[in-house]
Nucleic acid binder design. Structure first.
Lengths: 168, 168
DNA sequence: ATCAAGCGGACCAAATTGGTCCTGTTTAAA
DNA sequence: TTTAAACAGGACCAATTTGGTCCGCTTGAT
C-alpha cells in the first residue's frame, strides 16, 4: 500500500470539487492553484479519476471537471486504487506475482493483516469527511496578491507517532 | 510504511536463527540457502541487523550470526525499522520534510491513522510467533537434488481483498 | 601463517516516482 | 465558421529507490 503524491493530489483535487455545489464544473488550473499542485501533473491524475468514474470531464471552453458521485459515497480507498491501481503492501500480496517464499510463509499472513487494517481505515473515510476537516491551504489571498503561507507549527496534529525517533 | 525485500529477508533470516537453540552461530550462506535469499544481499541486511543490536556477528572461521535477544522479545516493527529506517506511509508523515500541503490538511490525519494501525500490527507480532507459523520453504530436497517448489494455490490465504480488480 | 568468515564501500541495472511537453480533439462562443 | 479554450493521451525525462554484486580489508581460530 504505497501512498504516492499522485494519490495525495487526487484526494486534494476531489476535495476542491467537493467544496463546491454538486455538479459544478471546475477548471484544472483552478484546482491546481487552490491546492498548490503542478497543473500538468494534476491533469494526468484527473484523467485517471475520470477513467475511474469518480469525476466527469468536459472539454472546450467552459470545460473542466465535476464530481459524478456524492462526496459521501467516495471512499479514500477508492481514490487510491483508482490512481495507483490494485496496490499491495508488499510483493507477497501482489495479485500477479504472489508470495515467492513458498509454502508456509508466515510473513504473508502478517503483511495481509497489516494491509487489511490500512484498507479498513481508508475504506472507512469518505471524501466528504475529509472535506469537512480540510482547509484548502497552500495559497492565501492577501492585500498584495497571492502568497504562499505554510503553517509548520500545525504539523504536530498529524499523529502522535511522528515523535518517536527510532534507530537508523 | 514500505515493506521492501530487505525487510522480508531480514525477518526470514531472523526466523532461521530463531529455529535454532538460542545462541547458536549460523553462517550467512546457511541462512541464505534455507530461505532462498541471495547471500551477498543477505550479508548487507545482517550488517544492519547487527548494527541494530538484533544479532551479533562473529568473524573468522566458525563465525556467523546469532540472535542476541530472544525471539519473543523482537517485534516485526523493530526489524522493519532497523533495516528500512524510520519509515512512513507517505511523505506527509515523514519526520524531516513533514506535510507540505500546509494548514488544515485533512489527509495527514488519515494517513497517520492508517500508519498507526500498521504499526500496531507489526509491533504486536514477534519473531517467535512468526517462527511458530513458518515452514522454511523455497527449496525442497528431493531424489534428484534441489528443486524449487512454489505453492501457488496457497496465495489465496493472503487476504480476501486481493481479488478485487480495480481500474488501471 | 593461513584460511574462513564477516565488514564495508563502490558500483550497478532496473523500476518507480514525479513530473513536463507536445500534438491532438472536443466544444463553446465570437 | 473560425477560433480559442480546455481536456486527452502519448512521449519523454531526471532523480530516487530497489535489489542487488564485487572486491579488497579485517578479524579470529587452528
Amino acid at each position: 500500500m504505497q501512498i504516492t503524491r499522485a494519490s495525495e493530489y487526487a484526494m486534494l483535487g476531489l476535495l476542491a470539487l467537493a467544496r463546491r455545489p454538486m455538479g459544478e464544473v471546475v477548471m484544472l488550473d483552478v484546482v491546481a492553484g487552490e491546492e498548490d499542485i503542478p497543473v500538468s501533473f494534476l491533469g494526468k491524475i484527473f484523467q485517471s479519476l475520470a477513467r475511474g468514474k469518480l469525476v466527469k470531464s468536459s472539454r472546450g471552453s467552459g470545460g473542466g471537471f465535476m464530481l459524478v458521485r456524492t462526496p459521501e459515497s467516495i471512499t479514500a480507498l477508492e481514490v487510491i486504487e483508482v490512481v495507483e491501481g490494485p496496490v499491495s503492501l508488499t510483493r507477497c500480496l501482489d495479485e500477479d506475482t504472489g508470495c515467492e517464499h513458498a509454502s508456509g510463509c508466515a510473513l504473508c499472513g502478517l503483511f495481509a493483516e497489516a494491509q487489511d487494517r490500512v484498507k479498513e481505515v481508508f475504506s472507512g473515510t469518505t471524501v466528504a469527511q475529509l472535506a469537512g476537516r480540510h482547509i484548502p491551504g497552500g495559497m492565501v489571498r492577501n492585500a498584495r496578491g497571492r502568497e504562499r503561507i505554510v503553517f509548520r507549527s500545525q504539523q504536530s496534529q498529524a499523529g502522535s507517532s511522528l515523535a518517536e525517533k527510532s534507530a537508523v
